[in-house]
Design a binder for these strands. Structure first.
Length: 551
DNA sequence: TTAGGGTTAG
């Protein structure tokens, strides 16, 4: 056993660096393998400095690094800030004639990918004489991660033509590409390909298949992927739960979560987060509270991400007190937590409370981001704080180095319009340093409703049509403004334009939690057994307002 | 000795 030390001094086998050093120091003869063991040990810890020190030292002592030593060096150089060292080791490898070692070359390619130099990776890949499944997988995954999905699919075709059969990892990467392309047909072809090749499908691939179908909106197919599994794991189930809530089917998401628990599959961090999101989507407060109970009993009770999801659920369900309790219980709220509490209060119209949290955030030295400012502008909008809103908008780029997005501009326009400054809002758009998009003009058009500014509305409408003639909201809003002003001829004209485009208004759906039952209803839907009672309850506030107005 | 999974505000 000449190389016994090779494995015995590896940290991953349970030993410590101290043990490794003892083996290393006691070795009678230190060959390249034992040196490499030490390098591997520090490489696993990600200690780049120690790795390079050993690499240099072994050469000083006259031991030539082998391909595994170099591979380890490449691994610690696999991040953007290590590119320079990565290039150095690559040069060393070329000079030592090790470039024909397949595993090493694959690692060099992956190193360049992780250094965000896909072009370098492509250069190395292109000149390879022999490529194995890992070489292709690294390239396909890299292209998908860079959003170059069509190229990734082309690589898959080339790989197959070149006689290298894809494995599970290849399909995992390609399925991700299908999702980015939102191309379910391609996803189905990939699925068929997996079946044709009778490839063993493991949990990784199953969860990716489920995620692909769920994200592309085909929940039935995602369900059947889960049915094909002996026992669907928490990851696959989470993919489907997330798919349900993304597609507005929060009720199904919650049902799946309950089923998962009944079947003894323990929810993890992401399962809780996705299920809380589902509760948030449909405003199921009681379900959300039950999930909160589960979280309290689990080891994830202090997890920041889970707490953020809890706040999101409570805020969306309109229970700001619960959201702020969760926030108060956090030891170190992150930017998401702050944004959540600020936007939660802003959204509910409690603008002053939202701004108090914003001040507190700044006082605690937390750096706001673009979303924080969206919430802050929203808060100002609700309270009618025009000048304060303008100040915050200005401070975004000036003091915090954040460039306003179209959403920020649109928010400012709405803020001005709400306060009756429609002319100022229009001037604000015309003075924008970037070209306004339709959302900014839509904010102005919508803002004209507050005071019935028909001429400004017409100008905004013309701009929107120029940018995007297929935006139903523009026609509907203008029509409403005409109707408010009794301009029936103009209204008829807009209706004609709408008919020409074939727009029809889709009934909006909403959910209501009745004790344990979640019911969905839309404006004209009377199918629920208690539809009459629900409608009476919904009419109550309007009736009360009418009564109050007439007295 | 090399490559991979589900998720996050408005």
């Amino acid at each position: 056993m000449p190389y016994e030390g090779y494995y015995s001094c590896k940290c991953s086998s349970g030993g410590t660096i101290f043990d490794s050093h003892r083996v290393f120091n006691n070795a009678n003869e230190r060959d390249d393998v034992i040196w490499t063991s030490m390098v591997a040990c520090y490489a696993q810890q990600g200690d780049k400095e120690a790795v390079f020190q050993l690499f240099n030292q072994m050469q000083v002592e006259g031991v030539k690094p082998n391909s595994v030593t170099c591979l380890m060096i490449c691994l610690v150089c696999s991040s953007p800030d290590c590119l320079k060292d990565g290039k150095k080791i690559h040069t060393f490898i070329l000079g030592s004639g090790m470039q024909f070692n397949l595993a090493l070359t694959n690692t060099i390619i992956d190193m360049y990918v992780k250094c965000r130099r896909l072009n370098y990776a492509c250069c190395v890949f292109d000149v390879m004489v022999n490529r194995d499944v890992v070489s292709w997988n690294v390239m396909i995954t890299a292209h998908v991660e860079a959003g170059l999905n069509e190229q990734a699919v082309m690589l898959l075709e080339k790989m197959q033509k070149g006689g290298v059969p894809p494995n599970q990892l290849t399909y995992v990467a390609v399925l991700k590409g299908c999702v980015q392309l939102m191309n379910i047909e391609l996803g189905m072809q990939v699925h068929a390909c997996i079946m044709e090749n009778s490839l063993q499908v493991d949990d990784f691939l199953h969860s990716n298949l489920a995620a692909m179908y769920a994200k592309c909106g085909s929940l039935k197919d995602a369900e059947s992927v889960l049915d094909d599994m002996d026992k669907a794991d928490v990851v696959s189930r989470t993919a489907l739960i997330a798919g349900y809530s993304k597609n507005g089917e929060g009720k199904e998401a919650l049902a799946l979560f309950e089923k998962m628990k009944r079947e003894g599959v323990e929810p993890d961090e992401l399962a809780f987060i996705c299920t809380l999101r589902a509760s948030a989507v449909i405003g199921a407060l009681q379900h959300g509270k039950r999930i909160h109970e589960d979280i309290r009993k689990s080891s994830l009770c202090c997890n920041v991400l889970v707490k953020n999801a809890l706040m999101d659920m409570y805020a969306n369900c309109g229970s700001l007190n619960d959201a702020s309790d969760v926030f108060a219980s956090m030891e170190a709220p992150d930017i998401l937590s702050w944004n959540e509490i600020i936007s939660g209060y802003a959204h509910q119209g409690a603008g002053k409370q939202a701004l108090l949290y914003f001040d507190k955030m700044l006082a605690e030295g937390i750096k706001p981001d673009a979303t924080t400012f969206l919430a802050v502008l929203n808060a100002c909008r609700h309270v009618g704080l025009v000048e304060q809103g303008h100040c915050h908008f200005e401070s975004m780029s000036r003091e915090h180095g954040i460039l306003p997005t179209m959403d920020h501009y649109a928010s400012m326009v709405d803020l001005l319009c709400r306060a009756g400054h429609t002319d100022r809002a229009e001037a604000f758009i015309l003075e924008m340093v970037v070209e306004p998009d339709e959302s900014v003009w839509m904010a102005l058009l919508g803002g004209c409703r507050y005071r019935g500014h028909v001429e400004t509305a017409k100008r905004a409408y013309r701009q929107i049509i120029k940018l995007n003639p297929t935006l139903p909201g523009a026609y509907v809003t203008l029509a409403n403004i005409f109707a408010m002003g009794g301009m029936w001829n103009d209204l008829a004209e807009v209706r004609k334009e709408m008919d020409a485009f074939g727009f029809c208004k889709q009934a909006e759906q909403t959910y209501i939690e009745l004790e344990d039952e979640i019911a969905m209803f839309s404006k004209s839907d009377r199918s629920h057994p208690q539809a009459k009672d629900i409608q009476t309850e919904l009419n109550r506030p309007t009736d009360l307002m009418k009564e109050a107005g007439s007295s």
